[in-house]
Nucleic acid binder design. Structure first.
Lengths: 139, 139
DNA sequence: CTGGGTGCAAAGTATTTGCATGAAC
DNA sequence: GTTCATGCAAATACTTTGCACCCAG
């Protein structure tokens, strides 16, 4: 766990407990994970961790913008470390997510979409749904 | 309810029950609605309708592509009539959704993002999160 | 030490299911 | 008449909460 993250936690009055650190590591390693996946993974490092702790931490880490929630059609929401804006390729069959870039063109074109509207845009979420490599080769 | 919709239902072996028709009308009128909003609205026209019926119908109507699910950060999923591809402006405070166009530029740029990947793209979901007019003028 | 964090168990909310009855076609 | 749909109640799944104890700072 990088010093940086501990500092961010401190800044918000959150302690760097082993459970919290384990949760962050689990998400970082998995890339994108839902609550159960985080729980299962974290439990391997820290066998006594409880589901409630995972829920509470994910909620507070999203609140301080260390994590970002990714809402998905047909799947439970996943969580990722909050990094540079980017978009997602999402497999409709298995739910796997891959990050891809979000080009300047797209950001520009998107900004144009809301021109003239009294809407305070904060973030763009672009998800491309389809079928991933693996799932194309099964049923 | 247009003839067209009844035909689509028939094509998939679904009956045009008053409950089903009421649910579709409720969604059409509201534009975007979650399960509870659909239920509440439908109940006004058809007082005996049950929540389970709303769930079952929404599931089957999504399955035949008459409805589309809109997954949202921090809000329960909403449902809309499945029409032309478009994007969404989503208010982070109140959850209201407004449809906006999805330009050819964006579709083109998005296609470029996945060039060279072994991924079978099916649909693009573009949501712009921010604060709507009404919510800018309250707390 | 002190305040926030954890884990447990219980409560609360959301969604799905089985089945007898009822309605669309 | 046949098939699918409805509504109810129960079951299941998911998430939040309260609280006693614990540990990071």
């Amino acid at each position: 766990m990088q010093k940086q993250i501990v500092d961010i936690l401190k800044e918000y009055g959150l302690k760097a407990t082993p459970q919290r650190v384990t949760i962050l590591s689990a998400i970082e390693r998995q890339g994108h994970a839902n609550i159960d996946e985080i729980y299962k993974d974290a439990k391997e490092k820290h066998s006594t961790i409880s589901l409630a702790t995972v829920y509470k931490n994910v909620t507070s880490l999203v609140a301080i913008d260390l994590l970002k929630e990714v809402a998905l059609n047909n799947f439970k929401p996943k969580y990722e470390i909050n990094k540079q804006p980017h978009s997602h390729i999402v497999c409709k069959k298995c739910g796997e997510i891959e990050d891809i870039s979000l080009t300047n063109e797209i950001e520009f074109d998107t900004a144009k979409l809301i021109e003239g509207k009294d809407f305070l845009a904060e973030d763009i979420e672009l998800n491309i749904y389809g079928v991933c490599h693996n799932c194309q080769n099964v049923g």
